[in-house]
Design a protein around this nucleic acid. Sequence first.
DNA 1: CGCAATCCTTGACTGAAGTCAAAATACGGT
DNA 2: ACCGTATTTTGACTTCAGTCAAGGATTGCG
Lengths: 237, 237
Amino acid sequence: MTSTLAEYRQIGIANTLRRCEIFADMPSQDLSTIAAITVVKSLDKGQYLFRQSDNTHGFFVVQNGAINMHRVNSSGREQVLHVFRAGESLAEETVATDSGYPADARAVEDSQVLQVQKAGFLALVRRHPELALKILSAVGRQFRALISHFDDVTLRHVEGRLANWLLQHCPDRTSTEAVTVELNTTKRLLASELGTVSETLSRTLTKFRQRRLIRQVRKSIIVLSPARLTEVVEAET
Amino acid sequence: MTSTLAEYRQIGIANTLRRCEIFADMPSQDLSTIAAITVVKSLDKGQYLFRQSDNTHGFFVVQNGAINMHRVNSSGREQVLHVFRAGESLAEETVATDSGYPADARAVEDSQVLQVQKAGFLALVRRHPELALKILSAVGRQFRALISHFDDVTLRHVEGRLANWLLQHCPDRTSTEAVTVELNTTKRLLASELGTVSETLSRTLTKFRQRRLIRQVRKSIIVLSPARLTEVVEAET
DNA sequence: CGCAATCCTTGACTGAAGTCAAAATACGGT
DNA sequence: ACCGTATTTTGACTTCAGTCAAGGATTGCG
């Protein structure tokens, strides 16, 4: 009876892991080995998954919800590094060092995350070297994503960033067909993902509306012509 | 005769590698295996080591000189990610993927770098899994450094960044003894490392001079009291 | 030594975007 | 439907830092 419950738990975990790029093409039996060293954490909205100063005990895979990784300055202003959603992994680079987490991470919705525990994972890596390469490639992805976000924030204006964000939610950036983008977060959160504040986001959306680039209905944004928005991104000084 | 030359080359390479954290505590014989898959590249000042779109063939260790890794926006403005100097390694995360380099890299002084070739290195990793963990920990370091630089640039003012940079070149941040920091680069380059332009750096140095925090003699900056500079960093709004 | 080229400094101006405040709108719970 | 709370929008203002321009200082080279 207990063993059946444990098996279910394992299968559930394995299914989530499979949705993550690191584990996507891993044989099922290896996956259950990983599942065995994994624990589920439930977080309420607003609760911290980790803080920069915490000791590290593994890395995480988001099962559902959203985890905001960020840094805070002394006056309380927050810089969002990334918002991780279902299937994304975070803090993988901590498995090889004892230097703490790279930033703070907080649930911005009620969330469930899997924690793949460091000790067990390291033991596994020693037996399966390809696993280290998988992690390395995941960390590389994060690294490139971070750089892209970095130069987005430092090298472009809010207009360009927003246009880009909208385009990432369009199936085809070159089409001239209207596309509806659902905004399933608050604008405040979107603003901070874009590295700005809600007032500026609001004003920028207004500009786009006036230029007939978008139309807004409640929490839906209708991109009237992805192609014209693409021009905005490229025309950026 | 030729074999003697080859041996010398190997030894020279091995000595450089040893100065890099990744290879610091590696047995000499493993190091020569690495040296065997390593080539030396000489770059003139201004010459590119790689561009973002290039195919990747390995990662690099700086032997001497300085390599500026950066991104450029459409109007030509550059955001420096890091300036790598002797003993530092870069682009390690490319060994596990085929996604190109994360940014552009250019020599800002005449430089020599070692290129550890990808194919050979990957073969080695399969035989020595700990090597993958070494690389992973190096990439983790880069990742954290990049995040720190990111929030420095987005979350602090030039004043705080400069103060911090000066303090990193002081043996003791809390001392009240004057310390001389040698500026062995142009101010333009320092400005871009700090994520600003030379005019702003110049003005900020002037402010510090007026507040009697520093004194300038040619290319030397005398920090009159590291402790007082530390206050500047912490007082940052 | 002297001149050109680069680098650095200073001033005046500009602009993007953050802050504060207040009004307007949306939303959940009873 | 109604009320209280949270979110969004708008306006007025501020500020940091970038740009442009011009003058001064350094440096290296012939």
